[in-house]
């Protein structure tokens, strides 16, 4: 009987741990399936470009979107709304941000690509979202994003949105 009890106790402790193990599992799962629109981390352009088979005739629309959380007193917007891109090539765009306040503020952007299945094929090679951004009082900046839409992007996608939300970093 002690064996049964021991096994049961062990199982419940393991399952408690499993709840926490679900976090890395979920993130991996999201990366594989594009579940929550998070794209994979930073990648170098050369590596990606080597693997591309470019179809010059194909064009997809990449739309840029920016939000600022209501607790952050910044202005933040894309400098261009849409870009026609050929999958497999490197492109660059810029986002404009301005600290409207008289204080230095640090923010961090979250990003999301929709539709989810497109996020699997969206490679950012340079992005302000990889680091925290500090803007001095009234400072304005242009923040570049370079990206490659993978040429393996499935045929059913012809428009995708790259969306950022800037949050105030709580100190």
């Amino acid at each position: 009987m002690n064996k049964t009890v021991l096994k049961a106790v062990l199982a419940s402790v393991l399952m408690f741990g499993f709840a926490f193990a679900l976090i890395p599992l979920y993130n991996t799962f999201c990366e594989i399936t594009g579940l929550n629109g998070k794209t994979s981390g930073q990648v170098t352009a050369d590596e990606i470009l080597k693997k591309q088979i470019v179809n010059e005739n194909r064009l997809v629309t990449v739309q840029f979107d920016a939000s600022v959380n209501s607790k952050l007193n910044w202005e933040f917007r894309p400098t261009e709304l849409n870009m026609q891109v050929t999958p497999g090539k490197l492109y660059k765009t810029e986002f404009y941000a301005k600290n409207l306040s008289d204080k230095d503020i640090t923010g961090r952007a979250t990003y999301s690509v929709t539709p989810g299945k497109a996020s699997l094929y969206f490679n950012k090679t340079e992005c302000f979202c990889f680091t925290e951004q500090t803007l001095k009082a009234h400072e304005e900046v242009l923040m570049p994003v370079t990206f490659i839409v993978d040429s393996k992007l499935t045929e059913d996608v012809n428009i995708m949105t790259l969306s950022y939300t800037f949050y105030k970093l709580e100190s």
Binding site: A8, A11, S12, V13, L14, M15, F16, G17, F18, A19, F20, L22, I23
Partner: peptide, 24 residues
């Protein structure tokens, strides 16, 4: 036995998100 501990884990994460600055 399989799921009550998972629930306990989930609410523990809520607790640390609220009081200890984690961001699960």
């Amino acid at each position: 036995i399989a799921v009550m501990p998972v629930f306990a884990g989930a609410v523990t994460m809520l607790l640390t998100d609220h009081y200890f600055g984690t961001t699960f």
